[in-house]
């Protein structure tokens, strides 16, 4: 019997250890309220004025109550998963945070943030609610600020609701690898190396796409141009366009990377096979798939000059 009681408590203790720690500290406003309380207490005692004392106690108790309220507003939250998108510098994205809560009353005005040198949060003040019963998705709008790769270790969430007297916060270990790709700018300074030349622009097996500068005049659909007065290019299915190798060899490395980044996206959209060659370190053979694009972009992000 003692054994079972011991086990019971042991389990309880280990369960309580698994509970997420939340921290609560008074904010600057809270400290000001404490100072005001002290002042009023002295005034009330000196002048033996019970109204001042009562006012003081009401203020103090609301202050204490808001401590419980604030803590209640953050208790029982669990981070189910995080999804950080990979971003280009100066482009906005949305990180998705999935929370669930044990608190039957839900939470409001939760703010999430993290520390990173490559990504910043666009709207520091934006808050979101978390509802009970099903996992809540909160989106955090973020912005790339620097090219590179980083591991974001923890995600903080905090709340100051309702009176801003207390700041309650907690953090979750996420260990999320993040890449920030170079900015997409077309400087046209990198070298495009075409490797394979296969083109038999014949047959019926084509579809039309918008004309883009650089398309061969042979492939322009002249009939369509005459009909609609708009430029279309015939994209042949059987005859794939030539694979292209993007090479980094110019000196303003950052600018070239930005330019390559731009071209990668353009080529991907045109369904043209592409590869990259960064100095002598990285060589990726031409291919066209979302996975491949990702691979190339990651290489660009982690490339060290």
């Amino acid at each position: 019997m003692f054994e079972s009681i011991k086990n019971y408590f042991y389990n309880k203790i280990s369960a309580s250890r698994a509970v997420h720690r939340t921290y609560i500290i008074p904010t600057l406003d809270g400290l000001k309220v404490i100072a005001l309380n002290a002042t009023l207490l002295v005034i009330g005692l000196v002048y033996a004025n019970n109204y001042v004392l009562l006012f003081n106690f009401i203020l103090f108790c609301l202050f204490l109550g808001s401590m419980f309220y604030t803590h209640f507003n953050l208790s029982g939250i669990k981070l189910e998963s995080v999804q950080f998108p990979s971003l280009h510098v100066n482009e906005n994205g949305t990180a998705l945070l999935h929370f669930s809560t044990k608190n039957a009353q839900g939470h409001s005005f939760i703010r999430a943030y993290f520390k990173s040198s490559i990504i910043e949060i666009s709207d520091e003040k934006s808050t979101f609610p978390i509802h009970f019963g099903h996992s809540t998705t909160a989106s955090l709008s973020i912005k790339g600020i620097k090219r590179g790769k980083e591991k974001i270790q923890s995600l903080y969430i905090e709340t100051q609701f309702p009176f801003n007297f207390f700041r309650c916060f907690t953090f979750f270990r996420i260990d999320q690898e993040c890449y920030t790709y170079p900015e997409r700018v077309n400087f046209n300074i990198h070298e495009e190396l075409e490797i394979v030349e296969t083109s038999t622009d014949e047959g019926d097996d084509f579809f039309l796409r918008d004309y883009q500068t650089g398309d061969s005049l042979k492939r322009v659909d002249w009939k369509k141009l005459a009909q609609t007065n708009r430029w279309y290019t015939r994209q042949y299915q059987s005859a794939k366009p030539k694979p292209i190798l993007l090479v980094l060899d110019k000196t303003p490395v950052e600018d070239t990377l930005k330019s390559i980044c731009f071209s990668l996206h353009a080529l991907h959209h045109q369904n043209i096979k592409y590869g990259i060659k960064l100095k002598h370190d990285v060589l990726i053979s031409p291919e066209n798939s979302p996975k491949h694009l990702n691979h190339c972009l990651i290489e660009l992000a982690r490339y060290e000059t």
């Binding site: 189910e80 998963s81 999804q83 999935h98 996992s135």
Partner: peptide
């Protein structure tokens, strides 16, 4: 239905 929705959601959350 909740279970199915949870499955769908998980498929969207998990990368």
């Amino acid at each position: 239905l909740d279970y199915v929705v949870a499955l769908l959601e998980q498929s969207r959350i998990n990368s």
